[in-house]
Design a binder for these strands. Structure first.
Lengths: 222, 222
DNA sequence: CGGAACCGTGACAAATTCGTTACAGTTTCA
DNA sequence: TGAAACTGTAACGAATTTGTCACGGTTCCG
């Protein structure tokens, strides 16, 4: 959500959180653009009255960028004129909610919009610096260059990404990637991890070994 | 429990004590916030009618603070209106009990709520001043700087944190961290504690030796 | 006060973990 | 059918972790 009023941000993100959504916030257009490109959110709540770059401009830039052009944008504003609404929608807003609004109504609209998107456009693409992973396309690229992974390697990578930050023990990975049902003593996870790291090159630094525990995918490298 | 009526406080805490719960009390919002942050209770009983800062405000602040945001809050009040209830629930209350109430009913509700929390929503992130510990991410930071702990050190730290304030004997730690099944005479707990303290630096003051008994994690440093 | 128990500390060696190489069986595909 | 790719296992060794021992300072109690 993009809004320069902290109270509104807090109230709406709280309500969305209660409804089960993960949220992130930005207080101005520049931050919004940056985050949209790096996080690739499922939907953006965009206030029109922003400091410096107004919401319409932000919307325009989001729509122009291939990385963000498909993200649904719900515009929020106290502006009631028909011209503003139409302009916003023409510039690419998905929907329009006038302020003041009830958080419940907003949550309901967000829910509905995401349900509509759940089918063909569910989030399946992840970006981490030079690494792009598109799950539905079975596509991994590093700096735009395509990396060929085997089925098992791809499954391992995407599972770690989906559980980003959380350490997965070898037994967990055997259960969830290999679908083993009981504990066995094997080094096969280690071997696949090595192969995956080889193929990914330097971005394999995102694949972190926690000694004595397991592996995890790091969103950020320090 | 937070209430400005001493009779109510005494009655409820007595009944909760009889039911086996440890309790602590606050008579106003400021005290409640301070204690919630330092004690990190399993649940808060919060009266709406408080002097100075009312219960809704306290609830709001508790929910905003990462340290206290996950604590279940049961609201107590003589206010019967639906608006207040919805507002309270929207601000983050877990449940709502109208005054006057039977202490028995309250204890039962507390019990049920705590049982519901015992399973899938167990806490995995802890904050103590500069120290952050995130169990599922296997992440420990001090002043934002990541601290690398070995598997055993991490296990020892998190177990003491989960049993915060309670002294764990060496035998208990050997059983629960090392998974030894019978008593052995060893100094290995002491050694790991030393290593953990070394890595944590000044915040290791939270790791307290109780001579002749064992070790505990202190929520606050005096 | 002195002795015994306790615990922090430094040093060392054994144990464990995991990256790596190599190999062989299985599967896939032209 | 045969070659290539995939997958899992075994063995080796480097790095890290772990546990033990001995010493000495601190605390407690008779």
């Amino acid at each position: 959500m993009v809004d320069d009023e902290p109270d509104v941000l807090d109230l709406v993100t709280y309500n969305l959180g209660q409804a089960g959504f993960q949220t992130d916030t930005a207080v101005d257009g520049a931050e919004a653009l940056r985050k949209a490109r790096s996080i690739n959110p499922d939907l953006i709540l965009l206030d029109l009255m922003l400091p410096e770059m107004d919401g319409l401009e932000v919307c325009k830039l989001l729509r122009r960028d291939p990385k963000t052009s498909a993200i649904p944008i719900i515009m929020l504003t106290a502006r009631a004129s028909e011209i503003d609404r139409i302009l916003g929608l023409e510039l690419g807003a998905t929907d329009y909610v006038p302020k003041p609004f009830s958080p419940r109504e907003l949550v309901l609209r967000v829910k509905k919009r995401l349900e509509q998107n759940a089918g063909p456009q569910a989030k399946t693409a992840f970006i981490f610096g030079p690494l792009n992973v598109d799950v539905s396309r079975h596509l991994v690229t590093v700096k735009g260059k395509r990396i060929e992974l085997t089925a098992t390697e791809f499954k391992l990578l995407t599972l770690l990404i989906q559980r980003i930050g959380h350490v997965q023990s070898r037994d967990q990975l055997l259960r969830d990637v290999w679908e083993y049902e009981s504990h066995i003593d094997t080094r096969t996870v280690d071997t696949h991890m090595r192969r995956l790291r080889e193929k990914l090159g330097p971005v394999s630094k995102h694949l972190d070994t926690v000694r004595g525990v397991g592996y995890r995918f790091l969103a950020e490298l320090n």
